[in-house]
Design a protein around this nucleic acid. Structure first.
Length: 1046
RNA sequence: GGGGGCAUAACUCAGCUAGGUAGAGUAUCAGUCCGAUAAACUGACUGUCAGAAGUUCGACUCUUCUUGCCCCUACCA
């Protein structure tokens, strides 16, 4: 058994272990061990290849790593392929920045092929960096050399398979409808790619002139003046009441909802008015109005020819409420989903004069070429000049922004491809019920609520770096036949060719003569796919790396996935939708949702300056760590691993707090201390694990208690891990190691396993402790794989025969400990709890009466009540309270010799009487303690022999010391011991000290330095233990001096 | 607008599913113990369990409402 280092240096330890794992190729050994075992199918949600991981990503991988290691120890073959998400806007935007490109057109000019190549290289470069970062977290035994990567051809084909399946099942379609588009990125975005932020906009009230009513105006309100260009109707609610109001100040009539009259006209505008006719909305239907921008947008005249309902009042009880605004709603079917819906119902033209870049097209008349948000002000001015504008005000509201570039989004009608997910909602909800969620409310509330409001999933994007839609359409307008391709092989069969790289622009070049009409050419639509479909299809698209084949049809659902709460609308959503759309079944059975990592309850972000990376923890460069001297020692990742596993409940955010983090290090240090302590004792006594076994039948109750606790703990943690209740695992482990082993069991067996101990059960106890520490180390292994490996290598590796196990190079090649239910004795555990409480009470009693714990007392008496259980651990109680006898009596009447304290179980009495034996032990224990302290202070090794002289200036003291001569020699390893020397010699080799003793022969307490100091000042001083008056002259002394024995 | 989460000691958080005298760690103070390191232990201290109402013999726990912080969602015309 090799000696453990006294000081725990995690940084160095971690480096060594990572090196060791590499050198011994432990990962390969794990893979061989796993062969043929049952599979636990874990699927890694792919992080995006942005180039560096933040603390949240680290946390995510660490939690996953715990379960991977745990499941392996439980005998499973674990799918450990990590993944990377590589496509999509984030990288495109990054590339554009690097290349100094401003917009989409410039990408064409730069060359799409080169652009794609750049994106790919960028992703690959980042992937390597991230691989390294993840491995440094101790997540070593994943298949880092073969991650699934979404830009690979086999992966792309997997997505094509999804498209084809959805097409065959009638769940893929194209449609023209308003969608939020990012003007900068020039693409449509799906629901999950929009982020709502507060913005301040100008809202305006307009009066729109009625065509067939004299001097009458319709009042509308809007926050988006730019959509007025495409206005084709005004909606009213047929069931609500509207008023025709005479405005005296202007001498004209306004029509608005009756509710709004007072608030708006007199409240906001302060006009005098008179309410005229009250009519229901339906009575207004068909009333025509003059479009407010009819001169500026001549195309509007065309529209009114196209549809008789254009520029008239239409009805909607669904989307118009008289409670809000003025009860009349400006309607632009090309710029809003509701407007669109009502527009279609009323056969209105869907007018969209805005390009995908947010710029007005020629149909917008004099606004052509203007960016819509810039046009707002222009339009406002025109309306003002025309006298159409009534009033403007600022309004703060939430508005959708691009998830990547933060641009304000533009609602515009566009032709896109969709999955019919809305129609699947009932089925999706049904499947969700079958998923085991941790926490349960992630599924029962959050995901359910998300699914309930699901719309059709827009999967097409007008960009470059992504998976091309495998949709080819015949360019003959009479035919327009559509072919959806499901694989590279199929493409080759049909088109006769298949590019080596399936990305744009190469795929765009593939075309063939249409076999439907034999006239046109089948050309691919230029779109690429929503990047969320990439990861959503991982179950089959990554089969090549997971299972070594590409039979997409036979995909296997994941047993377990785990991601952050943002994936409710992200991956959890895209996974389930992809699976249901393509295969009508669900693709994950259990799902753990964790929160985000916060710093002081705020989201970590670079702009806020509260951002840090895992490396800052590893290297100890985090400001808060450097600032505090005692924290500066905390380095490495193991503390964070332990901390982050238990720091918060499932689904909740992890609020990183330096103090808590440092406390965790204390726990780890205590764990280390336990092993260090055992390691020292084992080595000093030459304990041989394979030679010294314990006999279960010879164990005493304390030992059996420990075994019971051990098995209870294994049982608890096993259940927690199996149910993915991760945060409670460290709590259970901490309780056992710190409370039960470190603070209690070791305290109880200290004497037995000390070097000088001749206790017959010494090695038996050591063997038991060794076994318990081994099992505990196994429980710790998935949490702190590096610390536990280190301890394993130093203390256990060469001695596994003691447990009938073969020697293995790594603790991570061993199995999870079994629970031995026969050893769980609940009554024993309860008894120990009770004894602990009793000991605490009795110790507190001694404390109150100034009796040092190392001073024995004659007797402890417990006055029994009904609540008092039968005492099992009487010896333990006597030992830890340091009393010679323990009595339980039905009733007791104390005299002056007793002090008492109330406890839960009855009154406790302590006998204060002293005799020679008690006094002798009192003095000698104090003496020994002082000699030991001096030895330690002067760097004497444990067991190193000394020559000891003791000089006493009172006969009664000398006698007491003499009585315990042997004990003294034993405890302090004195080869020669002379008691009663006339004086202590002085030279540089001799260590000497003096104890000052209370002169009261019934007290004999050794007095602390501060008492003597007080005496020197001439004050009246009393012995704090017996209250006798002290003076410089009456103090007795015991002096000792020792040197290394020759 | 809709939905959800959180609110417990000076700090960080358990406890709430199944209602029965409020817990842990840290911090502070006092002390103890120790050949386990910057180790360990004990005691003391601090709580209107955010507020209000209800159900109940009894509410931190269940119900409703209010307040504050946070998150998700939505077309706010």
């Amino acid at each position: 058994m090799k000696p453990l280092a006294k000081n725990l240096d995690l940084l160095q330890l971690e480096k060594q272990i990572l090196q060791y794992w590499k050198k011994k190729v432990i990962y390969n050994q794990i893979k061989s061990k796993e062969k043929g075992k049952d599979v636990w199918r874990f699927i890694d949600g792919p992080p995006y290849t942005t180039g560096s991981i933040h603390l949240g990503t680290a946390w995510n991988k660490i939690l996953k790593d715990y379960l991977i290691r745990y499941k392996r120890m439980r005998g499973f073959k674990v799918t450990d392929t990590p993944g990377y998400d590589t496509h999509g806007l984030p990288i495109e935007v990054q590339m554009e920045k690097e290349l100094g490109i401003q917009n989409k057109q410039e990408i064409y000019e730069y060359g799409v092929d080169k652009f794609i190549q750049n994106c790919k290289e960028f992703a690959q470069k980042n992937l390597k960096i991230m691989n390294k970062q993840f491995k440094r977290l101790g997540c070593s035994f994943w298949d880092w050399d073969n991650p699934y990567i979404t830009f690979k051809n086999s992966y792309i084909e997997g997505i094509w398979w999804t498209l084809k399946k959805a097409w065959e099942r009638g769940l893929l379609y194209q449609f023209y409808r308003p969608l939020n588009c990012c003007p900068r990125c020039a693409t449509a975005l799906a629901k999950h790619e929009q982020e709502y932020k507060n913005v301040i906009d100008t809202s305006l009230f307009l009066k729109i002139k009625a065509k067939d009513m004299e001097n009458t105006y319709f009042i509308i309100w809007t926050t988006t003046p730019w959509t007025l260009v495409a206005n084709t109707a005004i909606m009213v609610n047929p069931m609500e009441k509207y008023a025709k109001v005479y405005i005296k100040d202007l001498d004209e009539y306004w029509i608005l909802s009756r509710n709004a009259v007072t608030v708006f006209i007199s409240g906001q505008l302060d006009y005098k008015y008179q309410v005229g006719d009250i009519l229901y909305g339906e009575e207004l239907e068909g009333q025509r109005y003059i479009h407010p921008l009819i001169e500026e947008v001549p195309y509007q005249k065309e529209l009114s020819k196209q549809s008789e309902k254009a520029h008239s009042i239409i009805l909607s009880d669904k989307y118009v409420s008289a409670e809000e605004g003025v009860g009349l709603v400006h309607t632009a079917p090309g710029h809003g989903p509701e407007d669109f819906e009502v527009g279609i119902e009323n056969n209105l033209p869907i007018f969209n004069p805005v390009s995908i870049r947010g710029i007005y097209k020629d149909e917008a008349g004099q606004f052509e070429g203007q960016f819509v948000f810039d046009a707002n002000e222009h339009i406002l001015k025109i309306l003002e000049e025309k006298g159409t504008l009534i009033v403007t005000s600022e309004i703060e509201h939430e508005y959708a922004h691009c998830w990547r570039c933060d641009s304000k989004l533009v609602y515009r009608a566009t032709r896109q491809w969709f999955f019919k997910t809305e129609s699947l909602v009932p089925k999706l909800l049904e499947k969700n019920e079958e998923i085991y969620w941790v926490p349960d409310w992630a599924g029962e509330r959050w995901f359910k609520s998300w699914l309930t409001t699901l719309k059709d999933w827009c999967i097409s994007r007008q960009r470059f770096w992504g998976i091309p839609l495998s949709v080819w359409i015949c360019d003959n307008e009479d035919c327009n036949d559509i072919t959806v391709i499901g694989s590279g092989v199929e493409l080759k069969e049909i088109a006769g060719e298949c590019p080596e790289d399936l990305h744009r622009p190469w795929i765009d070049a593939v075309m063939w003569q249409c076999k439907n009409c034999n006239k046109g050419t089948k050309r691919r639509i230029k779109d690429i796919l929503d990047v969320w479909l990439d990861s959503g299809s991982v179950m089959w698209a990554a089969q090549e790396v997971y299972d070594g084949h590409n039979h997409y049809d036979s995909w296997i659902p994941a047993d377990f996935i785990m991601e952050g709460k943002d994936q409710i609308r992200g991956w959890f959503n895209s996974l389930l939708c992809s699976a249901m759309v393509s295969s009508d079944r669900k693709n994950y059975n259990s799902c753990y949702m964790h929160g985000w990592v916060l710093r002081n309850n705020e989201k970590m972000s670079k702009s806020k300056g509260n951002f840090f990376e895992p490396e800052d923890l590893i290297n100890g460069t985090l400001e808060d760590l450097k600032k505090n001297k005692s924290y500066s020692r905390i380095k490495g990742i193991e503390t964070f691993r332990y901390y982050s596993l238990g720091a918060t409940q499932p689904g909740r955010d992890l609020n990183f707090n330096v103090k808590e983090y440092a406390d965790t290090f204390r726990t780890i240090n205590t764990i280390w201390n336990v092993y260090l302590y055992a390691n020292q004792k084992f080595r000093l006594s030459d304990f041989k694990p394979s030679k010294h076994a314990y006999d279960i039948n010879a164990l005493n109750k304390t030992d059996l208690w420990l075994l019971s606790k051990l098995n209870s703990t294994i049982n608890t943690i096993t259940i927690l891990a199996d149910e993915y209740k991760l945060p409670w695992i460290t709590e259970a482990l901490h309780d056992f190691i710190v409370n039960d082993i470190s603070r209690w069991y070791i305290l109880l067996i200290r004497e037995k396993i000390d070097v000088y101990s001749e206790d017959p059960s010494k090695f038996q106890v050591m063997a038991l402790l060794y076994k318990v520490l081994f099992d505990v180390l196994l429980l710790l292994a998935p949490i702190n794989p590096m610390i536990s490996e280190h301890i394993y290598l130093y203390m256990f590796k060469s001695h596994l025969d003691a447990f009938n196990l073969e020697e293995k190079d790594s603790i991570h090649l061993l199995d999870w400990p079994d629970v031995n239910r026969d050893l769980i004795a609940e009554d024993l555990e309860k008894q120990m709890e009770f004894s602990k409480e009793l000991i605490e009470v009795a110790r507190s009693l001694k404390n109150q009466n100034h009796i040092r714990l190392r001073w024995p007392n004659k007797k402890l008496i417990i006055e029994s009540t009904e609540k008092l259980p039968e005492l099992e651990f009487t010896e333990t109680i006597k030992q830890l309270v340091n009393v010679k006898a323990l009595e339980i009596v039905d009733s007791f009447t104390p005299d002056n010799n007793f002090v008492s304290i109330e406890s839960k179980y009855g009154k406790v009495f302590l006998d204060l009487r002293v005799d020679d034996e008690i006094l002798s032990e009192r003095i000698v224990n104090d003496l020994i303690r002082n000699i030991q302290y001096s030895r330690k202070k002067n760097q004497f090794n444990v067991g190193e022999e000394i020559s000891l002289d003791i000089c006493v200036n009172a006969d009664f003291l000398k006698q007491y010391v003499e009585q315990q001569k042997e004990l003294i020699s034993d405890k302090v390893s004195a080869k020669d011991l002379n008691i009663g020397v006339p004086e202590i010699k002085e030279n540089e080799n001799i260590v000497s000290e003096r104890l000052n003793i209370c002169p009261n022969p019934k007290c004999c307490a050794s007095l602390k330095a501060n008492i003597i100091k007080k005496l020197d000042t001439g004050k009246d001083v009393q012995c704090p233990y017996c209250s006798m008056s002290l003076s410089k002259n009456n103090i007795k002394t015991i002096s000792f001096g020792f040197e290394r024995a020759s």
